[in-house]
Design a protein around this nucleic acid. Structure first.
Lengths: 101, 101
DNA sequence: ACAAACTGGTTTGCTATACAAACCTGAACG
DNA sequence: CGTTCAGGTTTGTATAGCAAACCAGTTTGT
């Protein structure tokens, strides 16, 4: 094992959480996604999804636009540049771990 | 993204936790390790290390032998077969994720 | 010989997190 | 109209991580 354990200790726990990893993974490939789409894909409950989105937003990783589709509320989420970078770093850390254990 | 999000949702959270990932990673390559060695390597506090070890033991992933080195207490930890399998599965899940995002 | 300090841990208490149930607002429908 | 449904948010609870405090026993200093 040539693995530097510091790299394990330092993974971005915001993304490391599986629920958020799913969200970020989706957002990393779709430009933007609405709440219900994310819910269907992740199979999270609404409450759960809502709070994870809030956390990602608070971290500055995603932007959330509250708008309407016709008369129905619509929440659109987008991974911003900060989030994309954080995800890229996280993935490279994961890659490093996978390759060195 | 051809990634199956279920695989992300289903990672073994016992190992997924960075502190425990460090512990299991060490144990996967050393046959056995004592408490203080693990503490030095992981840089966890004693309390923290102690509780993570208990959790891994409760999960049936490691065996803990309490013995003495001379007159000084010595706690020796070993990743057992169950733990090795769980770690192998976890690593393959991680590999899958890294390769498909 | 006895107090002080050190070893090798465990237990306790606090904070933060994940999660789902309950709730809310407004639109559609019968 | 009142019931249902869409699209969420807030609240309550249980668990998890973490470090401080604690503890049993050993060594060291005087």
């Amino acid at each position: 094992m040539s693995l530097d354990l510091r790299k394990v200790a330092e993974v971005d726990r915001l993304i490391h959480e599986p629920a958020r990893m799913m969200i970020v993974t989706i957002l990393s490939v779709v430009d933007s996604a609405d709440f219900l789409y994310l819910q269907r894909e992740t199979e999270l409950t609404k409450g759960n999804l809502s709070s994870h989105l809030s956390k990602l937003e608070a971290a500055g990783y995603i932007d959330i636009q509250k708008t309407y589709r016709g008369k129905i509320p619509l929440t659109v989420c987008k991974l911003n540049e900060t989030g994309r970078e954080a995800f890229a770093i996280y993935r490279s850390q994961l890659k490093y771990i996978v390759e060195n254990t």
